[in-house]
Structures are given as structure tokens and as C-alpha cells.
């Protein structure tokens, strides 16, 4: 599994642990969050620090996850740098998502 999960101060922190985030991982990725929300997790952090490449399908999946979580909770992204940050900027997704620098900031944001 390319996702790691831990709980920090009541917030579920999910980090992507591989460099490539592409179409091959999309289905599993979306299902992971559907399950998390079904399990009552409503405050979620997605840490993309490890990701060095993200394709359009992956971006679509992150947006789908936002829609899944959105109605019942909050999702904060962190660790987006380089090409990933540029992709979010190019597609204006930096305005759609709450994006912060680090996981600690994300947890603080959700707990504030």
C-alpha cells in the first residue's frame, strides 16, 4: 500500500509514500478515503511530501477525495512541492484546497 495512516491529535494523517502518483494508483487511493470517511474519520490530512510526479488522473482523484470528504468533514493538504505544487497552481487547485506546508501546520489548522 502506498498510503500510510496515523492519528495526530485526533486528526487522521495520511501520507503518500511513493514518488509517482499516477493513474495506476487512483482507484485504490479513492477507495481508501471512501473507507476512511465511512469509518467516521472527518478530519483528514493528505501529506504529499514524498510525491515527485503527479499526473492528471491523480489530480482528478485528489479532487474526488475532496468531494467525498467535503460534505462531512475537512481535508487539508500538505507537503506539495516542485512539480506537484506547480500542478496545483496551474489548475488553480491551490484555491480549491486548503494547502499548508507541513503536517504539523495541517493538524493545527484542523484543530483551530
Amino acid at each position: 500500500m502506498f498510503l500510510d495512516e496515523k492519528t495526530v491529535d485526533g486528526v487522521s494523517c495520511i501520507s503518500f509514500n511513493q514518488e509517482r502518483f499516477d493513474a495506476a494508483k487512483v482507484v485504490q487511493f479513492k477507495q481508501f478515503f471512501v473507507d476512511a470517511v465511512a469509518a467516521g474519520k472527518t478530519r483528514l490530512v493528505l501529506d504529499l511530501t514524498a510525491v515527485k510526479f503527479m499526473d492528471s488522473s491523480a489530480l482528478g482523484a485528489v479532487v474526488a477525495v475532496l468531494k467525498t470528504v467535503g460534505a462531512r468533514g475537512d481535508l487539508v493538504l500538505c507537503g506539495a512541492t516542485g512539480i506537484v505544487a506547480e500542478l496545483f497552481k496551474l489548475t488553480r487547485m491551490d484555491r480549491v484546497f486548503v494547502i499548508v506546508a507541513s503536517e504539523a501546520d495541517a493538524v493545527a489548522k484542523l484543530n483551530s
Binding site: 482528478g60 479532487v63 497552481k89 496551474l90 489548475t91 488553480r92 487547485m93 480549491v96
Partner: peptide, 13 residues
């Protein structure tokens, strides 16, 4: 350009 929303991703973009 400075980017923009893709088509089909965000409503009322």
C-alpha cells in the same frame, strides 16, 4: 498565463 481551472473539475468555476 497563470493557470486556471480545468474543465469538468470544479462547478461554477
Amino acid at each position: 498565463g497563470e493557470g486556471g481551472f480545468p474543465i469538468g473539475l470544479v462547478e461554477d468555476a
